[in-house]
Nucleic acid binder design. Structure first.
Length: 635
RNA sequence: GCUCCCAUAGUUUAACGGUAGAACGCAGCAAUGGUAAUGCUGAAAUUCAAGUUCGAUUCUUGGUGGGAGCACCA
């Protein structure tokens, strides 16, 4: 007999070799039906895997997050089986479950697959499912495995990399056998709701020196409904694509004359200026000073900063008067020069210096993507100089600031702490430990949760990253707070301490939006182009019912709004009311006002808010103060 | 940078290797209106370079740009 401990702490005796499936069945047949896999001593295993000794057991049902991974991994195998049947020469790389689905990397050799081939593979997958079949696991010897996969070069490579003493498991279903750690669903009949989505090249083992395989992406769910919801989400993301909306709303453009160098158009400029003004306001309140450093500086400076050595391939260079210059890829070196222009006292710390700095980086052509990845962008940078014992308070203050600003944009976030890399780092381990502790203390003091990424810090210091979640469930890294132990040394930064001695300040880099360009790209998709009133390029569209009778009153209303700096417009073309209303809607203007005889006589306006159906008539002055309030509070 | 895919008026798009067609937008004319498209008329396009062909938007090669990924991303 062995003893099984359940998640609620209950213990129960079972015969040796009992399977999780049998245990589930014993509890209730309906539970067994919902079970996908099990966690035995925290290892995810198949339901029919016998348990040999005392263990803790957690049954994984369809509701558990791990269950989707199992399902999707099994669907990847199903896809591989279908592909093997259709393309017998295909060789397989790896085929894991990922966040929203799965993929499998396949070497089709001389065959080039296109997206048009995916439906046929899907059909084959479906017919395999229709035939039904168990998925079974077996453990075989290394020699047997090597023999079994002798025609699969990628699998052989994976097998050779497995530790000598590790048991090698394979999974079989019907005609298909794959090297796999598992676990899998017990039966292919579980795999009903899947969809193949796209394909693209992917380097074998993620190394650009290796051959490129064809990666096929797909997704799978337990129910038709979940699958459809996910497909709708993907469609909605496509609809909100900032490149599409940016064109429709005339916010920005890209030209083939400047790949990766965005142009800001009048509408986009309004949004950008609002955000920058807000940034200056809020930082001024927080005690920041502002600078702007040159875009181009002598190569000697980049040698001091280390960029010439470490970042050269991403820098644009030029010559001035026979001297080598580089366009800045980061703002910090210029900021260091500004700091060093004079002596600093501990009394002036923390010394906070902000810069909306335009940087240029030569990104690989294939990396460019709308406003998300560009070659020229504005960092909302700041450098803060202080003493060691100020770190906790200052970082806490920053977290509070970030928290407030992200709320304004209705963006959730979580914090990740990246710590000292294992090998490549500068400075003393004890200093690193203290710095990491300071960052942690700051987070804790603000009552925030965080996740640790061990070894993910930059070589020059630990950092906090702020990962935003948008309305389409995507994660974006925007904010960052990084301690820097490198540049203060390289630029020999100092301050005068109490006792008159020269000391080295602590410095941190921080950005709230990261890149203004990218942040606006995120906002476009987050809001689906329907910006909150304070950001909207046009805030009010005034529509007269009859041009002859109501134009003057329309102009009067616009005058009232403009007096309060509300961006109001009217279209005095000879078009029908319905036409103008439709246009205001397609432009996603927050407020449309219709005025006719009724409004003219009563001195009122009839407004409708974007996204709502109801029409409300109020005195003109009431409307003005209402919208003014909404704009001022950035609702 | 790599693999695959794509490139037609300002925008979205149609055209077996044989006259480039539409919708929106723009301009002109008429219609004067109450919550998502009034009608008529007009101007407006084959990404660039080479090749195959009697003839190329269509086929081939290359350039440029874009997309999906990969790699990259202090």
């Amino acid at each position: 007999m062995i003893e099984i401990t359940f998640p609620d702490g209950n213990k129960k005796k079972y015969d040796k070799h009992v399977t999780p499936e049998a245990i589930a069945q014993g509890i209730s047949p309906s539970l067994k039906k919902r079970c996908v896999a099990a966690k035995v001593n925290d290892n995810l295993v198949d339901l029919n895997r016998p348990i040999e000794e005392d263990a803790s057991l957690r049954l994984i049902t369809k509701k558990d997050p791990e269950a989707l991974d199992v399902l999707r991994h099994s669907t990847a195998h199903l896809m591989a089986e279908a592909i093997k049947q259709m393309y017998p020469d295909a060789n397989f790389g790896v085929g894991p479950a990922i966040d929203e689905g799965f993929y499998y990397d396949v070497d089709f050799h001389d065959v080039t697959l296109s997206e048009d081939d995916l439906p046929a593979i899907e059909e084959r997958m479906q017919s395999i499912v229709d035939q039904g079949g168990k998925i079974t696991r077996s453990v075989i010897s290394r020699e047997e495995t090597l023999e079994l996969f002798k025609d699969d070069p990628y699998k052989l490579e994976l097998i050779r990399d497995l530790p000598e003493d590790e048991a090698i498991s394979i999974y079989r279903q019907d005609t298909f056998t794959d090297l796999c750690r598992g676990p899998h669903v017990p039966d292919v009949s579980w795999l009903k709701h899947f969809k193949l989505l796209s394909l693209a090249g992917a380097y074998w083992r993620g190394n650009s020196d290796n051959k490129q395989l064809t990666r096929i992406y797909g997704t799978a769910f337990f129910s038709e409904k979940d699958l459809n919801n996910h497909l709708h989400l993907l469609e909605e993301r496509k609809k909100r694509d900032h490149r599409k909306l940016g064109k429709e709303l005339d916010l920005f453009m890209l030209s083939e004359y400047g790949p990766g160098f965005p142009f800001w158009l009048p509408n986009g400029m309004i949004i950008r200026k609002e955000i920058e003004d807000y940034w200056y306001d809020v930082h001024e309140e927080e005690g920041y000073e502002f600078i702007q450093t040159p875009i181009m500086l002598n190569k000697d400076l980049w040698e001091v900063s280390g960029h010439w050595e470490n970042y050269r391939e991403n820098m644009y260079t030029s010559e001035i008067d026979d001297k080598a210059f580089a366009i800045k890829p980061m703002n910090c070196p210029g900021g260091m020069l500004a700091y060093n222009r004079k002596l600093h006292s501990y009394r002036d710390f923390p010394h906070r210096v902000g810069e909306l700095g335009l940087v240029h980086r030569h990104e690989a052509s294939g990396a460019l993507n709308g406003l998300f990845r560009v070659r020229a962008f504005t960092q909302d940078d700041a450098h803060i100089f202080m003493t060691k014992d100020m770190i906790v308070d200052e970082v806490a203050k920053l977290i509070d600031l970030y928290d407030r600003v992200y709320k304004v944009f209705d963006l959730d976030y979580h914090i990740e702490l990246s710590t000292r890399p294992d090998d490549k780092f500068i400075g003393e381990v004890s200093v690193w430990d203290a710095s990491e502790k300071a960052l942690e203390d700051a987070i804790v003091s603000m009552g925030k949760d965080y996740k640790v990424n061990p070894g993910d810090g930059a070589f020059y210091g630990p950092k906090l990253d702020f990962k935003l979640r948008d309305s389409m469930n995507r994660i974006w890294q925007c904010g960052t707070i990084q301690l820097d132990m490198n540049l203060p040394e390289r630029f020999d930064l100092t301050y005068i301490d109490h006792d008159g001695s020269k000391q080295r300040p602590v410095m941190l880099h921080r950005a709230l939006f990261g890149s203004i360009e990218r942040f606006i790209g995120i906002l476009i998709e987050h809001y689906a182009g329907a910006f909150p009133t304070w950001l909207a390029p046009v805030q009010v569209e005034v529509i007269p019912v009859n041009l002859d009778l109501h134009s003057d009153y329309a102009k009067e209303i616009i005058g009232l709004l403009k007096e309060q700096d509300v961006r109001a417009e009217s279209d005095f073309r000879e078009e029908k009311l319905g036409y103008k209303i439709r246009e205001a809607q397609t432009k996603k203007i927050p407020y449309q006002i219709v005025i006719g005889d009724n409004e003219l006589e009563a001195g009122t306006v009839t407004y409708r808010k974007y996204g709502e159906k109801k029409q409300i008539t109020v005195p003109a002055a009431t409307f003005v103060s209402m919208i003014k309030e909404e704009i001022d509070t950035k609702q």
